[in-house]
């Protein structure tokens, strides 16, 4: 199972790196989305893969009975997903606004803030 997950993560990371090498900012963003999901899988795998029950404690009990899954990586992944969602939604809106106001999504053509030196 670990091996399978590791291979999956590898493929996702490779794909995202390929996408992020593109000059099109939108494709770069898609790469970033993929990469952040790959990282979530990494955290999940780092918490060890066990076939445990959900980490819930029955009413009145002080400890769960039987084997339960590690809850911490799940909490970390959830937090990371939420934060990642917010950041990526912001970035998508930013890319869209940039496209509307600069008329391009090609990162090479974005030279407004750093204009090329005219007097050489």
């Amino acid at each position: 199972m670990e091996l399978l997950l590791a291979i999956t993560i590898g493929i996702v990371v490779a794909t995202s790196v390929y996408l992020m090498l593109d000059r099109n900012v939108l494709r770069f963003l898609f790469g970033l989305v993929l990469l952040s999901n790959a990282v979530n899988l990494v955290i999940f795998a780092a918490g060890r893969l066990t076939a445990g029950a959900p980490p819930l404690i029955a009413d009145g009990a002080y400890a769960p009975d039987g084997q339960i899954a590690n809850a911490l990586p799940q909490a970390l992944v959830l937090t990371a997903i939420v934060i990642g969602f917010g950041l990526l939604a912001f970035t998508l809106a930013l890319v869209y606004r940039t496209y509307k106001s600069l008329g391009t999504v090609n990162s090479d053509e974005m030279r407004l803030a750093e204009p090329e030196d005219t007097h050489k």
Partner: peptide, 18 residues
């Protein structure tokens, strides 16, 4: 949202996300 800000913003945001 001036044009320069958006232009600089894209680079700031993407690299910081990485």
């Amino acid at each position: 949202g001036s044009r320069e800000q958006l232009d600089g913003g894209i680079k700031y945001v993407t690299l910081n996300l990485i």
